[in-house]
Amino acid sequence: MPHLYNLHIIIAEDDTDDADVICETFSNNPNFGKVSLVANGEELLSYLKDSSNITPDVILTDINMPIVDGIEALQQILNTNDLKTIPCFVYSTSINPSYKEKCDLLGVKAYLIKPYSFEAFEEIPKSILAIIEQQYA
């Protein structure tokens, strides 16, 4: 990842209220030029496999979603040669240690706890940028 501006992030989030807030948060961050939203892991995988879509720079997924959950989607993404180099992040209301352990084993860059206030949501893009910057410095 040569630069940390004008990034394209795809977010998998099934809760419409959370989706609105997280999309607005990333849209308001000047480092992110494009925000794409899908409703579950199946839609995330379909988006990534569709060659007409531009490959995102970052993936952020919730865990608990219908059809295909975030961990199942990440297992496929991080085991696919063309996709496994995309920095993947999880955010969830769950503090279940087994979820975090699974994410760590998969190579997820960070397991972020979904905040309860709008102001705290604004920290998510900053955290993601800091982690990416640290790894590519």
Rank of each mutant, 00 (worst) to 15 (best):
L83R: 06
A137Y: 13
M1H: 03
I63A: 03
D57C: 09
C23E: 13
L74V: 05
L4C: 01
I59R: 02
P115G: 06
L74T: 03
V21R: 11
E123M: 15
K109F: 01
N64M: 11
A39D: 12
L45I: 08
L37Q: 10
L48C: 15
P125C: 08
E43G: 06
S36W: 03
N31W: 02
S51L: 07
N64S: 15
P87F: 05
A137L: 13
I95V: 11
K84P: 04
E72C: 10
T85D: 10
Y5S: 12
S27L: 12
I63E: 04
V38I: 15
E122G: 04
Y116F: 12
I54P: 09
S51P: 06
E72S: 09
V108F: 00
L105T: 06
A12K: 07
F32R: 03
T25G: 13
G33Q: 01
L106G: 14
F32Q: 04
K34L: 10
I132A: 00
K84E: 09
I77S: 04
Y99L: 09
L129E: 02
P115A: 07
A130Q: 14
I71F: 04
L44W: 05
I9S: 00
Q134P: 05
A120F: 04
D17A: 13
I63N: 02
S98T: 11
G41L: 13
N28A: 08
F32S: 03
Y91G: 07
S92E: 05
D20R: 13
P66R: 15
I63H: 02
K109H: 03
A130T: 07
I124M: 04
L105F: 06
Q135N: 14
D17K: 08
S92W: 04
Y116R: 08
D14I: 07
D17W: 06
L37M: 13
L129I: 05
T16H: 09
I10A: 03
E119C: 07
T61N: 01
V21L: 12
I54D: 11
I77V: 13
L105P: 00
V108A: 00
A130V: 06
S92D: 04
I124H: 08
E123P: 01
D15C: 14
L74G: 02
I95C: 03
F121T: 05
D17N: 10
K126N: 15
P87L: 05
Y91M: 14
I95M: 07
S52P: 00
P115Q: 12
D62T: 09
P2K: 11
I124D: 05
I113D: 01
I63S: 02
K109D: 00
A130R: 09
V58W: 07
Y136A: 15
L48N: 15
L4Y: 06
E101S: 08
A19S: 15
A12T: 04
